[in-house]
């Protein structure tokens, strides 16, 4: 088994887990909090609000400018 196959399989597994979390967070009994709830919780303070926005800015700079 090549290293690339193992890496791809791990990334695919992580993507499935992420999708599973999204689905679980939208179920009627909500076993998992929605990601938006967690982000809003982080943004509840001024420091958290700025930190989340800086993270968003870094994402844009990293993927679109560089």
């Amino acid at each position: 088994m090549t290293a690339r196959l193992v890496s791809d399989a791990l990334w695919a597994a992580l993507a499935l887990v992420g999708a599973g979390l999204v689905v679980a967070s939208h179920l009627p009994n909500r076993p998992v909090a929605k990601a938006s709830w967690l982000i809003r919780r982080l943004q509840a303070t001024s420091v958290g609000y700025v930190a989340v926005l800086l993270g968003w800015m870094w994402l844009g700079w990293h993927f679109f400018a560089r």
Binding site: L14, V17, G18, L21, A24, R30, P31, V32, A33, K34, A35, W37, L38, R40, R41, Q43, A44, Y49
Partner: peptide
């Protein structure tokens, strides 16, 4: 900030 509903299980997201 708008008021948030009560806490749910958030740790799966942090672990992920």
């Amino acid at each position: 900030p708008a008021a948030l509903p009560s806490a749910r299980r958030w740790w799966p997201w942090v672990a992920f």
